[in-house]
Design a protein around this nucleic acid. Sequence first.
DNA 1: ATCATTGCAAAAGCTTTGCATAAGA
DNA 2: TCTTATGCAAAGCTTTTGCAATGAT
Lengths: 178, 178
Amino acid sequence: MKEFNENAYENIRKPVIKGRAEALSLKSPPPKGDVLLELKAFRDFLRDRGYRVTKEREAIAETILRNRDHFDVDELFLSLRTKTPISKASIYRAIPLLIESGVLAEVYLENGHMHYERVYGREHHSHLRCVKCHSILEFSAPELTTIEKRITKQEGFKSEGHKFEIWGLCAACQAEKN
Amino acid sequence: MKEFNENAYENIRKPVIKGRAEALSLKSPPPKGDVLLELKAFRDFLRDRGYRVTKEREAIAETILRNRDHFDVDELFLSLRTKTPISKASIYRAIPLLIESGVLAEVYLENGHMHYERVYGREHHSHLRCVKCHSILEFSAPELTTIEKRITKQEGFKSEGHKFEIWGLCAACQAEKN
DNA sequence: ATCATTGCAAAAGCTTTGCATAAGA
DNA sequence: TCTTATGCAAAGCTTTTGCAATGAT
């Protein structure tokens, strides 16, 4: 076993503070939607790190890679359950690995629990959140990276990522009377 | 009692989704640091809305207005406890009022609990967070507002606020060996 | 054959809430 | 006087964890 993998759980289970994934084997994303390739990359990531490739981890990764971009643990759990028996504990334990591998990212907290999004093979983007209907609109704003660079240089900071979020009322909700 | 205040708790207790405060009586901030004036504005806000001015709410507001910019509920609780008896329940129940009045804002979740910052009388700003030592650096980037306006106009969104955050390693933590 | 991973149930930790009492208006 | 707010303890939730059993290497 590789030495850096001693106490793998110890290292991996620390609370995940929002962090842009530092993909390892996942460094060169395949064309979007190539789930098989993406899954292989995730397996390679596990092996590289000395983690075991289990059917649970594969099922979790595959479900995420095939499904909708935004979700929470419960949705993922229910979605997995229709296909294979799995416990929530395994999902919670897999999430840090998925984040570390660059498959997932935490996006925001709502109603007391975290929401995630699949990031592997997708462009970096920001979110517009409707505070009424909870819908999410995505957008890109390249200037954000420029700002990130300027500020971090100025402060001697080594950046690992940024997040920009706008909240308010979407067009549909403004139109409603109530 | 004012009609809009029926079921005040019902209305106010809903999960607070990050939202820039829409200050009411607090619309024209007094000079920074004028705690007495700020407190008066908070009392006016309570009265305007039909909420009661209690010594607990005053103590909470005063402690926030006099103290450090960033804190969590436990720090606030301990700080209050040295001066006056108070329960955490009252703090949790006061937070939505403080947010609504524009005194406070949620800033980020860390280690499973929310962190807040005093916003009343301060410039809007963004945060640089060190993922290692958890220090926070503040900065301003006016272009963010420009981006916010452009995107929301483009999407027909009615903006209520934005949040920009950069995370990584601060200068001090980069210097450390470990 | 080892030892990481799983599932289960229990524990943890933050936040909310029901209810009786206190206290604003 | 009439309600709202407080305090306490209990409940609620999401997430984490201990442990015995399972399964990957």
